[in-house]
Design a protein around this nucleic acid. Structure first.
Length: 231
DNA sequence: CGAATTTGACCAGCGC
DNA sequence: GCGCTGGTCAAATTCG
């Protein structure tokens, strides 16, 4: 059960811009990220990481989410920070690029209410809801933010651009990329932050079932343990 | 000439 | 039902 104090804590964290982070969800720097930092000579101090890895929401409970610690309190933060060579961890903000993340968190939070309400719905409505839910199943996604001149950071994988779209309320287009590896359905979106065009928002969707095509082995070797664990 | 990118069209989901 | 928006497709174009 949840007490009032926990709700207040969540509310405060949310107002401060921290993501209420479920303990049973993984938080990880994106694959090949520090390779990118090195490759583009981006000083770690200039890099804000707002990383979010949300699996399918179905196995998350109301309690899990609300009892979670926020991003700053996670035990593995030190580990992650050191992997980034001291890159500063930032909170996810409610920017356009992160709406999906907030959406999923909110979705989780309302799951319990929905279950109760569903008892009052007709069979047809229930079927429709199930169909929609099935269609709505999404690959795990996470996004991160880097201050960079270039839009596409080198993450070790080969990507093919398949679309570009001007998104509402932004002057910069969003680009859509797919992993070029056969049978790999991983996608990524790249866009610039409306509020600060120096920041690039990269959103990954899906999991690679293969290793990076790049043969920059020294970095990937150092990462492999982390990557294998999360990815 | 094949691969990669560009870009307009199309489609699905969502809110009104 | 309609319009808006984001995501994807695929033909055309460009690049190496």
């Amino acid at each position: 059960m949840l007490n009032q104090g926990m709700f207040e804590e969540q509310e405060m964290a949310s107002q401060m811009g921290f993501v209420p982070f479920p303990q049973n969800l993984s938080f990880l720097p994106p694959l090949g990220c520090h390779q990118s930092l090195k490759a583009f000579n981006i000083p770690p101090s200039l890099v804000g990481v707002a990383d979010h890895h949300l699996p399918s929401t179905t196995n998350l409970t109301h309690e899990t989410l609300l009892s979670s610690a926020n991003l700053k309190q996670r035990d593995d933060q030190d580990h992650i920070a050191s992997d980034f060579g001291g890159a500063q961890l930032l909170s996810l903000q409610r920017s356009n690029a992160n709406l999906w993340a907030w959406g999923e968190v909110n979705e989780c939070l309302s799951n319990n209410k929905r279950i109760v309400n569903d008892h009052h719905l007709g069979v047809a409505t229930m079927k429709m809801k199930k169909m929609k839910a099935r269609r709505k199943v999404r690959e795990p996604r996470f996004c991160f933010k880097t201050m960079s001149e270039v839009d596409v950071l080198d993450d070790g994988y080969k990507w093919r651009k398949y679309g570009q779209k001007v998104v509402k309320n932004t002057q910069h287009p969003r680009s859509y990329y797919r992993c070029t590896q056969d049978n790999c359905r991983v996608k990524k979106r790249v866009e610039r932050l409306a509020e600060d065009p120096r920041m690039v928002i990269t959103t990954y969707e899906g999991r690679h079932g293969h290793s990076p095509s790049q043969d920059d082995q020294e970095d990937s070797q150092a990462q492999s343990q982390l990557n294998n664990f999360f990815w």
